[in-house]
C-alpha cells in the first residue's frame, strides 16, 4: 500500500478479478431465474395412479442450483471486492478526489433508483387517471366500454376488474400508518447516529445505529404481516391492476428497505471494528442517503398507494 509520501494524484487500482467474477455470478443468477420461472419448484409434474400429485423438488432442474450458485457467487464477489475497497480506505487512499468520485457516484445511483420508482409511479397514475376511466367509457370510449365490458364500473381503488374478478383494498390507517411512523423515526435515529459519529460519541453512535436497524427490521416484519393479511383478504399479486401495482410498488420498496438494512448492518459491524472516523466514513454517509431515499419513496407510496 502506498504511504502518504507517494500518494498518487488519483488512486487508480490495479487489475481486479472481481468485476469479471461479478459478471459470471450475475449471469448464473439471471439464467437460473429464467429457468426456475419455467421449471418452478412445487409445480405438479406427474400424477401417480393413486391420485397423489408429484411436485417438482428443489434441484430437479439445474436452474434452481444456478440461482443459488449465482446469488452466492455474486454476494461472495461483492464481499471480496468491497474488502479490497475497505483496505484501500483504511490505507488512506480514499481521500481527496476519489472521495468525491464515490460521493457523486452514489448520488447518481440513487437518482437511477428514483427513475426506476418513477416508472412504477407513472404506471400507477396512468392506470388511475387514464386506463380505468377509459375502460369505464370516459372521453370517446363509450363504445369500447359498451362492447367490451358494459358492466364495468370505473373506480379507484379498482375492486372489480373488467373481467369480473375482484380484489380487496388495503386501508392506510392500520399497519401502513404505523410503518410510516417507524420509517420516519428511523430516519431521525439515523441522523442522530450520524451526528454522533461526527462528534466522536461512540456509545451514542452504536445505540442509535442499532435502533435504526431494529426499526428497519420491525418495518419489514410488519410489511410481511400486512402481506399475509392482504392475501387473506383476497388482495393478491394476480388479482388485477390494483393488486399488481400494490405488490409491485410496496414489494420493490421492501426490497430496497432490505438492502438498506443490510447496508446499515454492515456499517454497524464496521463501527464496532472502529473503521470510521469523523472525516472518513463515506460508506456510512452513502448508506444514510440510501436510507433517506427509501424513506421518501415510502412517503409517496403511503400517500398514493394506501391513502389517496
Amino acid at each position: 500500500m502506498a504511504s502518504a509520501a507517494e500518494k498518487p494524484y488519483y488512486y487508480v487500482p490495479e487489475g481486479s478479478p472481481w468485476p469479471l467474477s461479478g459478471s459470471v455470478g450475475l449471469c448464473l443468477l439471471m439464467v437460473g431465474i429464467a429457468n426456475t420461472l419455467h421449471y418452478p419448484v412445487g409445480e405438479v409434474v406427474d400424477k401417480l395412479p393413486d391420485g397423489t400429485e408429484v411436485l417438482r423438488q428443489f434441484g430437479e432442474h439445474w436452474g434452481h442450483l444456478s440461482v443459488l450458485a449465482g446469488a452466492l457467487w455474486l454476494v461472495a464477489t461483492l464481499f471480496f471486492w468491497w474488502r479490497d475497497t475497505i483496505k484501500e480506505s483504511i490505507a488512506g487512499l480514499h481521500e481527496g478526489k476519489l472521495a468525491g468520485s464515490y460521493r457523486q457516484g452514489m448520488l447518481w445511483f440513487i437518482f437511477s433508483e428514483v427513475m426506476f420508482f418513477a416508472a412504477l409511479f407513472g404506471a400507477l397514475f396512468y392506470t388511475r387517471w387514464l386506463i380505468v376511466p377509459w375502460l369505464g367509457g370516459e372521453g370517446n370510449n363509450a363504445m369500447t366500454h359498451e362492447v367490451l365490458w358494459p358492466n364495468f364500473q370505473a373506480m379507484w381503488p379498482l375492486v372489480t376488474n373488467p373481467d369480473g374478478s375482484s380484489t380487496a383494498i388495503m386501508g392506510a390507517w392500520g399497519l401502513p400508518a404505523i410503518n410510516t411512523a417507524l420509517l420516519l423515526t428511523s430516519s431521525i435515529t439515523l441522523t442522530i447516529a450520524h451526528h454522533a459519529l461526527i462528534a466522536g460519541e461512540r456509545g451514542k453512535l452504536i445505540l442509535f445505529q442499532g435502533a435504526t436497524i431494529v426499526l428497519g427490521m420491525i418495518f419489514l416484519s410488519l410489511q410481511a404481516l400486512e402481506y399475509v393479511h392482504a392475501y387473506d383478504m383476497g388482495l393478491t399479486f394476480d388479482s388485477g391492476i390494483y393488486g399488481s401495482l400494490f405488490f409491485m410498488m410496496t414489494g420493490f420498496h421492501g426490497i430496497h428497505v432490505t438492502l438498506g438494512t443490510i447496508m446499515l448492518l454492515v456499517c454497524f459491524l464496521r463501527i464496532l471494528k472502529g473503521h470510521f472516523s469523523a472525516d472518513n466514513h463515506f460508506v456510512y454517509e452513502a448508506s444514510a442517503w440510501y436510507w433517506h431515499f427509501v424513506d421518501v419513496v415510502w412517503l409517496f407510496l403511503f400517500v398514493v398507494v394506501y391513502w389517496m
Binding site: 416508472a119 386506463i131 373481467d163 399479486f237 388485477g240 391492476i241
Partner: peptide, 29 residues
C-alpha cells in the same frame, strides 16, 4: 435505463405471476 428496467419487470410479472399491467381484462392496458 431504469425506466426500461421497470417496463421489462412488469412484463416479467405479467408473464409469470399473473399481474395485469398490460392486460385490459384486469384493468391494465
Amino acid at each position: 435505463m431504469p425506466v426500461l428496467a421497470g417496463a421489462v419487470t412488469m412484463m416479467l410479472t405479467d408473464r409469470n405471476f399473473g399481474t395485469t399491467f398490460f392486460d385490459a381484462a384486469g384493468g391494465g392496458d
